[in-house]
Simulated scan of single mutants.
Amino acid sequence: MKILVTGGTGFIGRWVVEKLLKDKHDVWVVDDLSNGRLENLETLTDNENFQEFVSGDIKDKACLATLFENNFDICYHLAASINVQDSIEQPQTTFANDVIGTFHLLEECRKHRVKMVFMSTCMVYEKASELTGISEGYPVKPASPYAGSKLAAENMVLSYFHAYQLPVTVIRPFNTYGPFQKTGGEGGVVAVFLKNKLSGNTLSIYGDGTQTRDLLYVEDCARFVVESGYSERANGEIINAGFGKDISINDLAEMIVKDKTRIRHIPHIHPQSEIPKLLCNYQKAKDMLGWQPVFSLEEGLQKTEQWIKSTNLI
């Protein structure tokens, strides 16, 4: 197939591109490089099926119109403003990228009858109850403009399924980690903790550290993203993906550094947007796509640590 990946130089995006190339599809990538890095594609652009990298903005209608002349079969839409704190401080930027940009892409997909897989987020959900994981029908609670923008875009995407019979799938991966994730700022708790461990620094935890996360290794996530695009059964659906177990940030820090004296707690920078418990129920993905995670947390942490060591990011 001919496939477009928006945000393909980003952390999850480059793994999606790699999986699509392994599956022998022709792949185009569009990215404005505001969050991704061209180096992430270094080992992939020599592949005979890698067609083109376009430095462009999904809000640029002319750029999209030219791109879509390639007659794609699927558009995996991963481009987004993803930083929660930035969305609180600059909601207009997040709304413009995540809602308006998605609308412009949807219009091109509608004109050319291209399936869209829309990357949403687990951050749209209310906190999980103590026992049950979060399934797709679970209550939503957009506690940041980032989550609000993702929900707004989800609704637009699904409206094109109902109004125009456009094949679309909305996916909500949980907290994804692994090689190529940024190791600073809000790069991801696993990457930040591992970098600080390897650098001999203290691991800083926002708040009391009892908040939990469901950590999904990136290769499992990329396989989920790609296979949701292949499946006709997934059209018009919202689908979660996660590891299916959660871990507190305190326990994660201890698992990584194995020394409580190197862990400190600091005031939370955006407590209003903290979700106290995230735990994924991925039964729908298992039933509909035959998908389930294969990498354990221990395996994923080891692979991520090896990658950080190999890149001299410490």
Rank of each mutant, 00 (worst) to 15 (best):
D23V: 04
L67K: 13
L41Y: 04
F68Q: 00
Q92V: 01
L4F: 00
E39G: 08
I58H: 04
A62G: 14
Q51G: 03
H77Q: 14
Q90S: 09
T9W: 00
G101C: 02
E52P: 02
C63V: 15
E52W: 01
G101H: 05
W28M: 07
K59S: 07
Q51N: 07
L41H: 03
E69I: 03
D57K: 05
T93K: 02
K59M: 09
R37S: 13
L4H: 01
G36E: 11
D26E: 13
L21G: 09
T66R: 14
V29N: 05
F50S: 10
E42Q: 14
L105I: 13
A65W: 11
H77L: 13
A65Y: 13
Q51W: 02
D31G: 03
I58E: 00
G36K: 10
P91E: 02
V17I: 08
S34D: 07
C75W: 06
A65R: 15
W15H: 15
K19A: 08
V29H: 04
F72T: 01
L44M: 10
K2C: 06
L67T: 12
K2H: 12
I3P: 02
A65K: 15
D98S: 04
D73M: 05
D86V: 00
A96K: 05
T94Q: 01
I88P: 00
D57Y: 13
N35P: 01
T66G: 14
E42L: 12
S81R: 00
V30K: 02
L44S: 06
I100H: 09
F95R: 00
I12D: 05
F103G: 03
D60G: 06
F53V: 12
G36R: 06
F53D: 07
E39R: 11
Q90E: 05
T66D: 15
Q51F: 04
K59G: 01
T6N: 08
N35M: 10
L106F: 08
S55D: 04
H25E: 10
T43G: 12
G56M: 05
T93I: 04
G56R: 05
K59I: 04
G56D: 09
S34H: 10
V30N: 02
V17Q: 07
L78Q: 14
G56Y: 07
G13A: 06
F68C: 03
R14F: 03
D32C: 11
E52R: 11
D32A: 09
F11G: 06
G10V: 09
K19P: 05
D46V: 14
